[in-house]
């Protein structure tokens, strides 16, 4: 199957799911799919770094928080329309990602994880400390105004759902395009052997920075969608536990298959919702599940499926 065929099938599937949900689904299904789209995009955007470049960022939530707060504040100011606010948010994410990235990519391995985590906590403490602007612990209250644009009224949950799905699918296609491009293969080479990549004349640091910024941009889009969905922004969007959750999603789904993180996000949300409903000690249960996956399976679900598929194909041949 060619990449183009896969893309077309993916789009058709997304359109079918969206249409079917609009036709038959209730409010609950709408909510589930919107959250899946938001966190799926967040996990896929992080996987540009983790899976393809081999940089384990433990601070990805900073882009999620940055996106939702910047967008929310811009909309609350009432000065700009939704598309303009989204564009400005992307610019903000670009600048933040560029500056933070310049520091982070100087370090390798675990120190890269430290530093991303540290910068994320910096953003978190700014959000919590700057009460007059962000509302501190309470979060961005009072709702986010959603004035109509281009004939779309996002206060209508069904229209918001369609727009969320459309943005999600577009972003996924772009990310796929990126990782399948020569640039994407250069990232894989950096992941596998940065030194050799350097010998071959690849500007490794610049590529890492670009990957960092791209990952951040898509992360902030996920943040924008989140602030539209909950009509607010909360400090825990930028907290370390959110970063941890996203990494958890990636590992649940698998890092070697493109859509792995999306499946991981689905499994994670399913687990999370059920555990929260059953017990208040949600940390223990999630921690044990995580240990079981990491120490037991040692791979994500799609990784396992992929292995099994390849083994079977090998046996037939």
């Amino acid at each position: 199957m060619t990449a183009r065929m896969e893309n077309i099938i993916g789009i058709l599937l997304a359109v079918a799911v969206t249409a079917a949900t609009l036709a038959f689904g209730g409010k609950a299904l709408l909510d589930v799919l919107m959250r899946l789209a938001i966190f799926g995009l967040l996990a896929l955007s992080l996987n540009i770094l983790v899976g393809y470049t081999g940089l384990v960022s433990f601070g990805h939530a900073m882009f999620f928080g940055l996106g939702s707060y910047t967008f929310g504040l811009l909309m609350q100011s009432g000065a700009v329309s939704i598309p303009v606010a989204a564009l400005l948010t992307l610019v903000a994410a670009l600048v933040w990602g560029g500056v933070v990235g310049m520091f982070c990519i100087r370090l390798d391995d675990i120190y890269f994880s430290f530093l991303t985590l540290a910068f994320q906590m910096l953003l978190y403490s700014i959000i919590v400390g700057f009460v007059s602007l962000t509302g501190g612990d309470q979060g961005l209250m009072g709702g986010i105004p959603r004035p109509p644009f281009l004939g779309l009224d996002l206060t209508d949950p069904r229209q918001l759902f369609v727009v969320t799905m459309a943005v999600f699918v577009t972003c996924v296609l772009i990310i796929r395009q990126i990782v399948q491009s020569p640039f994407g293969f250069a990232l894989r080479m950096i992941r596998d052997n940065a030194e050799r990549a350097r010998f071959l004349g690849l500007p490794v640091q610049r590529y890492k920075l670009i990957a960092f910024v791209l990952s951040g941009l898509f992360g902030s889009i996920s943040g924008i969608l989140m602030s539209l969905y909950v009509s607010g922004a909360y400090p825990n969007f930028a907290f370390w536990s959110t970063s941890g959750d996203v990494i958890f999603m990636i590992i649940l789904g698998g890092i070697t298959v493109f859509l792995g993180p999306l499946i991981g996000a689905a499994v994670f949300l399913l687990l999370n919702d059920n555990i929260t409903r059953m017990t208040e000690h949600h940390g223990i249960v999630m921690g044990v599940v995580l240990l079981a996956v990491v120490l037991g399976l040692r791979k994500g679900f799609l990784d396992l499926l992929d292995d099994w598929w390849r083994a079977r194909a090998g046996a037939v041949r």
Binding site: V56, F58, D109, I110, S113, G283, G287, V288, L295, R298
Partner: peptide
């Protein structure tokens, strides 16, 4: 068990324990 695995796995084992210990 994760000495020879990559950083991601080590990070996740620790993260699991952070979650569990906070709850305990």
């Amino acid at each position: 068990r994760v000495y020879n695995a990559d950083v991601l796995m080590q990070l996740l084992v620790c993260y699991a324990f952070i979650l569990i210990l906070d709850d305990v």
